[in-house]
């Protein structure tokens, strides 16, 4: 294990940024989100939850895919992707890292989403262990260890130092490039922090959420549960939960006319929106209850049923914090998760 003094972190960032793009939680206009690092940027690794999750790095909110140039009756398709320069995504929490694995199963499943794949491959992920989980955190429910996230490199941060441990080949390569800034040591401090954090994690109010009923075989029973009506009653149908969610992956593909051809882009979409499933001849989900149910059924039943039981919620708690009317997945889990009919 390696370590570096906290006040020298800017040197580390600078070093990484010399050869690669560095995405790191940065405070801008009061809010912390992942952004490209530059001299003078206010990095905030301490922030537990960035507003937007790092999924934005692989699956950007808006992404230009291609351009169509039309002349008379002819169409020319221009691929707009450029060579991806390598990136380092720094400070990813355990829950958000798990979320990337969840997204991988969607985008890297056959047929592979080449846009996502290119970004994913060009990126080295440095994860950061949590030391101050909040009351809205419930990653442990999904079997995530917030104190020891995976990733190419894992780092721990305490009041004095940042501790560094590489886990993969990509991580080794990054380590080699920055090693001169580090000294050896830190095992004891990391162990101590892990133990202290684990104690807090156990005490968190959502630590004992019961997911036992969310199984593929209960799909229809859960779908038909009358509780959805009441659960969704206050839902405004905004997309906040889906846009702050690290695992929500729905997107829309749209065209935009520019002075230089037609741009086809994809952008995040939300199953909470009324036009999400709108077709020329009808809509399969006409009420907010149906849309609300879709979101949670997808996370807790549909996705696991297609991915060997892996839930598509990682317990980051962003929706708990950000829903304007305080609806969230925790309420759904509490209402439907443990209820056993037998």
């Amino acid at each position: 294990m390696l370590k570096i003094a906290k006040e020298r972190l800017n040197e580390l960032y600078g070093k990484i940024a010399q050869t690669q793009g560095l995405f790191i939680p940065v405070k801008k206009a009061g809010e912390v989100n992942y952004a490209i690092w530059g001299e003078g940027k206010e990095v905030s690794l301490e922030t537990l939850k960035t507003v937007k999750s790092p999924k934005n790095m692989f699956f950007p909110q808006t992404e230009n895919m291609m351009k169509f140039k039309t002349e008379g009756k002819n169409i020319d398709i221009i691929d707009m992707r450029d060579e991806k320069r390598p990136y380092v995504l720094f400070g990813v929490k355990a829950c958000d890292y798990k979320a990337i694995e969840v997204l991988d199963k969607v985008f890297l499943a056959d047929p592979v989403d080449t846009f996502y794949k290119a970004r994913r491959e060009a990126t080295t992920i440095v994860t950061l262990a949590c030391s101050r989980p909040e009351e809205s955190c419930f990653c442990s429910v999904f079997g995530i260890d917030a104190t020891a996230p995976a990733g190419d490199v894992t780092v721990w941060l305490d009041n004095e130092n940042l501790y560094w441990q590489s886990n993969t080949e990509k991580g080794e390569a990054l380590t080699a490039a920055v090693k001169e800034l580090f000294t050896d040591g830190g095992e004891a401090e990391v162990e101590a922090q892990k133990a202290a954090t684990k104690e807090i994690l156990q005490k968190l109010p959502f630590a004992a959420l019961d997911l036992s009923r969310f199984k593929p075989e209960n799909l229809n029973e859960l779908f038909d549960d009358p509780a959805w009506e009441e659960l969704s009653e206050a839902c405004l149908g905004c997309g906040t939960c889906t846009f702050v969610c690290p695992t929500c992956q729905c997107f829309d593909i749209r065209d935009f006319k520019t002075n230089d051809g037609i741009l086809r882009y994809r952008c995040w979409d939300s199953c909470m929106y009324s036009d999400f499933t709108l077709m020329a001849h009808g809509n399969s989900r006409t009420t907010q209850m149906q849309r609300y149910r879709q979101r949670f059924m997808h996370k807790l039943v549909y996705y696991p049923s297609q991915n060997d039981g892996l839930y598509s919620c990682v317990g980051c708690g962003r929706c708990v914090n950000k829903c304007p009317q305080h609806l969230n997945i925790v309420k759904v889990i509490k209402t439907l998760g443990g209820k056993n009919d037998d």
């Binding site: 969607v106 985008f107 499943a109 047929p111 989403d113 593929p216 799909l219 229809n220 779908f223 992956q249 729905c250 997107f251 829309d252 593909i253 979409d269 199953c271 999400f276 499933t277 709108l278 077709m279 809509n283 399969s284 879709q294 059924m297 997808h298 039943v301 549909y302 996705y303 049923s305 297609q306």
Partner: peptide, 19 residues
Amino acid sequence: LELRMKCGVGKCGRCNVGD
């Protein structure tokens, strides 16, 4: 069946019926 589709490859998340 027919539902709203955007990607055609099971990624955009809108044409599902159940799982």
